[in-house]
Write a protein that binds this DNA or RNA. Structure first.
Lengths: 147, 147
DNA sequence: AGTGAAAGAATCACAAC
DNA sequence: GTTGTGATTCTTTCACT
């Protein structure tokens, strides 16, 4: 799927996407133009979805993080989904199989804010809230070495 | 917490972290040197945790995504956590309050692989697996406009 | 926070393997 | 088909305002 050079490019860019092509080229042992072409190909193929930044919620005052399972009441699915999408504190939302229709990640500045936000969907869905105590894996891409 | 200029810098960089300082400066209406200084301050303050890339798991052949709730059996907590960390297909892991000790995100190439990976922890923990059908919110930072 | 000069990097056309 | 070379253009950075 990906050769060794592409893998190393991805590894370097995951740590620092603003690195210059020149330095990236040196780290993987090729010239800048060839790295440039590989980069564009990785973008075209969709392997690199975006060059972005990671923002630290804590640095913005979000002291609490929760994962909430949401089971909309009959007929309320679309209203609930809309409410989730329009509440910016919900930062991840997965529609899943099984009892829980949505599993969402919520950032809040306080328990009071958590309560407020959950309350707003309380009449449209059943919810189970789990406060995040630690993050053994904060976020990483799936392996691209194999295949 | 953040002034308007910093907010706009973050917005632009979220979409493209490889943008040149010059263009970034034009988009927010300041000169390159002042943008450069603001960038460094945002990094030092920890607001920008990293300049990185988003890799698309689908482009790497991961057709399935699951969210798994994991309740280790008595005495098995640390073994289970280690197993999760060492299995690279687990790409997110939150240790949470409540019955479910861990909530993890799992990328796999097939149902067979999903079964294999879940089986490896089946004798050490109870698990509930929910297949991701859609992602109404793929991932976004919490609001930095307010406060 | 802006200006201008010097250093450095990206990109393009083209050559080589 | 992919990689390297060198010229041109653009960007970053630094001293100074």
């Amino acid at each position: 799927m990906l050769n060794n050079i592409d893998q190393r490019i991805l590894e370097v860019l995951l740590k620092d996407s603003r690195i210059s092509l020149k330095e990236l080229a040196q780290q993987v042992g090729l010239s800048s133009p060839s790295i440039s072409e590989r980069l564009h190909r990785l973008e075209e193929r969709g392997v690199i979805r975006a060059f972005s930044i990671e923002i630290d919620p804590q640095a913005l005052g979000y002291q609490l993080q929760a994962i909430v399972r949401i089971r909309p009441l009959p007929g309320k699915l679309h209203i609930v989904q809309k409410l989730i999408e329009e509440t910016p504190e919900f930062c991840e939302c997965d529609k899943v199989t099984g009892d829980d229709c949505f599993i969402v990640r919520l950032f809040v500045r306080s328990i009071e804010q958590l309560d407020q936000i959950i309350d707003r969907i309380a009449d449209k869905a059943e919810t189970s809230t789990a406060i995040v105590k630690a993050q053994p894996i904060k976020r990483r891409p799936p392996p691209f070495g194999i295949a």
